[in-house]
Design a binder for these strands. Structure first.
Length: 940
DNA sequence: CGAACGTCGTAC
DNA sequence: GACGTACGACGTTCGT
């Protein structure tokens, strides 16, 4: 609570596990699994997972507490105590012993105290530890323990309650009040009134948690309720008066005894070294594969490296939050953590009130709900809106199920919203809003003033976090668990369309989306604003790009499906021939698509040498491996032939025609703006950024990317943009001069490295220089270069050394970059985009080296991404008045593809190349190559 | 039977 | 172990 200037030493932590509770709950919650020997394992499995989760939190002390056989003080007090509980099922009883073995092997102390119930052991230890300043977590499924919860502070530890099966957590008085309606001190009174069927304690008939809490808040305590029992009216009042005599006993029974005499104290419960071999045997016996893997591989998992020099790495702050502090997200505005109130808008009046409220607010968050995930085909089902945290509306417009309430007319409702969305002065906030922009546009609503996108805020703030979806962001930045889509619509075969979801559930889910988006923006906006460089990347590059990408996606690209079908047929013919040949050579049939079967055939049956290994150490059947043995046998070459053909057919010629949108007749990829950590876009559904070009068979596919009659395909691409950026960043004189002169850069490099005149450079020397140029940008070493060029490692090392002696600025730049990564924990692009390197201080040398390579590559790849994004925004602005004449249809990292009227091509090329070249001011010129044709292949 | 993982291969 | 960033097809294994 009280923030001290220097970080306080971490509190010691004790976890008390209610073993019996977990065993029972896991047994009933999980399906009756068994291992290969037929022994039941379901409950065991649940308990083991819970234990592993518990140990991941690295507690200092742990106890696994179970009931000892024999009567306890409660039985003496109340002979019927737990009398209606059935005997333990045999299948569960069989799991008790193995469970204890696993607990022991994990290094956890098992406590079983005769004559004392597990609850009282836990209560006693919890209180003692808290008094000693230890933070206590009680892990149980039993809500009775809520009576012990307290916040830490003033030298005392806190006592928190977690239920790992439901994921719920009570860690403060306030959270208990929120859940039960009464503070921890009144929980026993509440339980006494409610009774407990499981323990055979009858409470007040028809009195549940709500009534009990109401009475307690009215009369202060159980004694107060008893004193005023006559004042309670109605049937339930009679029930209360009938139950009066037993209420004091009830309270005694549910009160956890915290003063039991115990031999052990908290200090005796220190976690011991786990017994790996014993665990391995137990896990193997019961078939716990995941636990086994963790046992074998998990030890290598490094703790995330905190960034050096006291700068706040986002990763670092997260780790800090995660460490079980009482408030999961310190420093968060409490208004952003309060529960929300959501309204279903069904009437004209409600809608008008919301329209007024949104306009009044000057900014609002919105989200659309649809009947599908393809933004170019989905139909609108509803819209949600929020203008202040905690208050949101869901406007259902297409829910259709038996008994669905009447909803506002779609067109009328959109007509009411249209002026809001069209007003550029009214700021709109979304999460992955490109999707919603598509949907709204297709329903006749144009959006202006799309000002903030929380996905992009998160991406620019820390691109390293791989997920930027709303659920993850809410968890990460608000400590908030959202309602999941599956929770309202089901999953798998049982999933229903959102239009079938009951309005109540739909509102809970959809309105929350808008609410959480707004809250996230309130949380992330200031974080971003505190970093001016990042704020600029977000404002000046990413946000303007959203609408541009939306247009590029909506434009789509025309595909000649007939051409692809012809190619598929041709590929198919050749695949069959290759397959027949392979069967002949192998002497039997096998699945050419299965690396496993290929390996078995080549290395075991045919005894060919396995020269290449996969990253997991197994013999590989990849191209390199097959090439290596192609001299020894005909079969590898045939497999390679087959593979090349199969790849083209399955990934491209068969797939692309399937992806044609029936409404537009074109293919619309989706660009993922927060896809690549370096800032590059990623393309999917389908991926149009990896259409083949290097081989003739592959390149033919580009002939199917066409323009309609009277139009042409125009391609403009940056020439050697990443190398130019390397020249800019390194300020290496030789490299700068080479680009200044406009020479062929690989030839110039070869001339420098091999000490020749430009026109004396051989094809082979140029090839080597090109490999060096590219390899360096990826952080490649001598080994990689040697493999790439098929030369010796020593020779490759000589080339690299020679290169660095000719281009010393490049060497210095690379060293500077590595150093910056180590010191600050991140590297940045020319425009200030940052990439944090998680593993830059990893103890594992492989991970660390990988992070260093990424650090070297990211400024170049990322700057190139920034530049083309800026160019896209600029070109799109110019095209705004000329959309009939030309469309931007594809982006492939350093290339933009357009479709244009034949008589507009020259003007387009002039503008596009000029704007691409002007997208950055570097120390070298940006050069753009362009081409025109009837298809993408010709345009290159 | 679907999810997750491993392997392979395409692009820049 | 050894070249950065992606997506996706296919086979296989896992877990429900």
């Amino acid at each position: 609570m009280n923030a001290s200037p220097t970080p306080a030493p971490a509190r010691r932590r004790l976890v008390l596990i209610d073993g019996s509770s977990y065993l029972y709950r896991a047994f009933h919650a999980l399906p009756p699994l068994s291992n290969e020997a037929g022994e039941p394992t379901g409950a065991l499995f649940g308990v083991v997972n819970m234990l592993r989760a518990t140990l991941n939190e690295k507690p200092d002390y742990v106890a696994f507490v179970v009931d000892a056989p024999g009567p306890t003080f409660r039985d003496e007090m109340y002979p019927q105590y737990k009398a209606n509980r059935p005997p333990m099922p045999d299948d569960l009883r069989a799991q008790v012993q193995p469970m204890c073995e696993i607990v022991e092997a994990l290094g956890i102390t098992i406590l079983r105290v005769p004559g004392v119930e597990a609850d009282d052991v836990i209560g006693t230890l919890a209180l003692r530890a808290a008094r000693d300043g230890i933070d206590v977590t009680i892990s149980t499924g039993d809500k009775d323990f809520a009576q012990l919860v307290r916040s830490g502070g003033d030298g005392g530890g806190g006592i928190a309650l977690v239920n790992t099966m439901s994921g719920s957590r009570l860690d403060s008085e306030a959270s208990v009040v929120e859940k039960f309606g009464v503070p921890p001190g009144r929980v026993v009174d509440l339980l006494a009134l409610m009774g407990d069927a499981i323990d055979n304690i009858p409470g007040v008939d028809k009195c549940g948690p709500k009534t009990a809490a109401k009475w307690l808040n009215e009369y202060g305590s159980l004694d107060g309720v008893i004193a005023h029992a006559d004042a309670v009216k109605g049937k339930i009042g009679d029930n209360l008066r009938a139950a009066l005599p037993r209420l004091p006993l009830n309270r005694a029974l549910v009160t956890i005894n915290t003063e039991v005499a115990l031999e052990q104290g908290p200090a005796d419960l220190a976690l011991r070294e786990r017994h790996v071999e014993a665990l391995r045997a137990l896990y193997a016996r019961y078939g716990f594969k995941q636990a086994l893997r963790e046992l074998d591989g998990g030890a290598a998992a490094d703790a995330p490296a905190a960034a050096g020099d006291g700068r706040v790495s986002m990763r670092g702050t997260e780790a800090g939050h995660a460490r079980g502090a009482a408030k999961p997200l310190d420093g968060l505005d409490p208004a952003l953590a309060a529960p929300g109130e959501y309204e279903t808008v069904l009437t004209r009046e409600q809608l008008e009130a919301w329209v007024a409220r949104l306009r009044q607010a000057g900014a609002f968050a919105f989200d659309t709900e649809t009947d599908g995930l393809d933004p170019l085909q989905a139909r609108l089902v509803g819209v949600s809106l929020a203008a202040e945290p905690g208050r949101a509306a869901y406007l259902p417009l297409g829910h259709d199920y038996p008994g669905a309430p009447a909803q506002l007319d779609l067109d009328a409702a959109l007509a009411a919203l249209r002026p809001l969305f069209a007003d550029p002065g009214l700021r709109k906030i979304g999460q992955h809003g490109k999707f919603d922009l598509h949907v709204l546009r297709r329903h006749g609503v144009e959006v202006a003033g799309y000002a903030d996108d929380t996905m992009l805020e998160s991406f620019v703030y820390n691109a390293t976090a791989t997920r930027h979806d709303m659920d993850s962001l809410a968890k990460r930045y608000l400590g908030y668990d959202t309602v999941k889509y599956e929770q309202v619509a089901g999953k798998g075969a049982k999933q229903i369309a959102f239009s079938q979801v009951a309005l109540e559930d739909a509102t809970r889910y959809a309105a929350e989306d808008a609410d959480v988006t707004l809250r996230l923006h309130r949380a992330l906006g200031p974080k971003l604003a505190a970093e001016p460089a990042l704020e600029r990347v977000y404002r000046e590059i990413e946000m303007p790009l959203v609408q541009v990408l939306e247009r590029v996606e909506a434009n789509g690209v025309m595909i000649d499906a007939e051409e692809l079908r012809r190619q598929s047929a041709d590929l198919n013919k050749r695949m069959l021939a290759a397959q027949q040949k392979a069967t002949e050579l192998a002497g039997r049939s096998f699945n050419l698509d299965s690396p496993k079967q290929v390996c078995a055939l080549l290395y075991e049956e045919l005894k060919l040498p396995a020269l290449v290994k996969t990253p997991t150490g197994q013999p590989s059947a990849n191209e390199e491996a097959l090439e290596a043995i192609a001299e020894l046998h005909e079969l590898p070459r045939v497999i390679l032939e087959y593979r090349g053909l199969a790849k083209l057919r399955s990934t491209y010629t068969d797939k692309l025609p399937e992806m044609i949108n029936p409404h537009t007749g074109r293919v619309h990829t989706s660009y993922h703006q927060a896809g690549a950590a370096t800032g590059r876009l990623a393309s999917n559904d389908p991926n149009l950024q990896n259409i083949p070009i290097r081989t003739d068979d592959g390149r033919r596919i580009r002939q199917a990317f066409v323009a309609p009659p009277g139009r042409r395909i125009v391609s403009c691409d940056y020439s050697q943009i990443e190398l130019r950026i390397m020249a800019h960043l390194s300020e290496d004189e030789g490299l700068l001069r080479a680009f200044e002169s406009g020479a062929d850069i690989h030839r110039a490099t070869a001339a420098e490295v091999f000490g020749k005149a430009m026109d004396q450079v051989s094809a082979n020397e140029r090839r080597a220089a090109k490999a060096i140029n590219f390899g360096l940008m990826y952080g490649m070493g001598a080994f990689g270069l040697a493999r790439n060029l098929g030369i010796g490692r020593g020779e490759a090392q000589d080339y690299i050394a020679l290169y660095f002696s000719r281009y010393p600025g490049v060497r210095d730049f690379m060293e500077r970059t590595r150093q910056q990564a180590r010191e600050r924990g991140y590297v940045e692009t020319v425009f200030g985009r940052r990439l944090y390197l998680e593993n830059i201080h990893a103890r594992n040398a492989g991970l660390r080296a990988g992070a260093e390579r990424a650090a070297i590559n990211a400024p170049m790849q990322g700057t190139a991404a920034d530049i083309i994004k800026r160019a896209m925004v600029s070109i799109d602005a110019w095209l705004a008045e000329r959309r009939e004449r030309a469309l931007m249809v594809l982006q492939v990292h350093d290339e933009l593809v357009f479709e244009a009227d034949a008589d507009f091509v020259d003007e387009l090329i002039a503008q596009a190349t000029a704007r691409m070249a002007a997208a950055a001011e570097l120390r070298v010129p940006l050069v753009i190559d362009s081409g025109v044709g009837d298809n993408w292949d010709q345009a290159h």
